[in-house]
């Protein structure tokens, strides 16, 4: 009986130690497997260049479009 308990406990500890916090997550629950490596303002628009790789027929500088500039300003408000 005692042996069984120990085996069951060991199995439980092992399986919980190996499964991620994400697998038991429910809607609206905590951060899950997210360790919290972030700043208050999250940057997600590094590839935001509408004219990237587009050949320009007329050699003028493109209009000043900082990546998601508007989004950035709004999120800081």
């Amino acid at each position: 009986m005692k042996h069984r308990l120990i085996t069951a406990l060991t199995a439980l500890v092992c399986s919980s130690a190996c499964s991620s916090p994400e697998t038991a997550r429910t809607r609206g629950d905590g951060p899950g497997a997210d360790l919290g490596n972030r700043d208050p303002i999250v940057r997600m628009h590094e590839g935001s260049k509408p004219y990237a790789g587009t050949p320009r027929l007329i050699p003028t500088p493109p209009p000043p479009l900082d990546p998601a500039d508007q989004a950035d300003r709004l999120s800081r408000r």
Binding site: C18, S20, P21, L35, N37, D39
Partner: peptide, 14 residues
Amino acid sequence: LQSHTFRPMFKYWS
């Protein structure tokens, strides 16, 4: 290394 918090970056399940 976590690039924002500079804590060690370690996920034992990944």
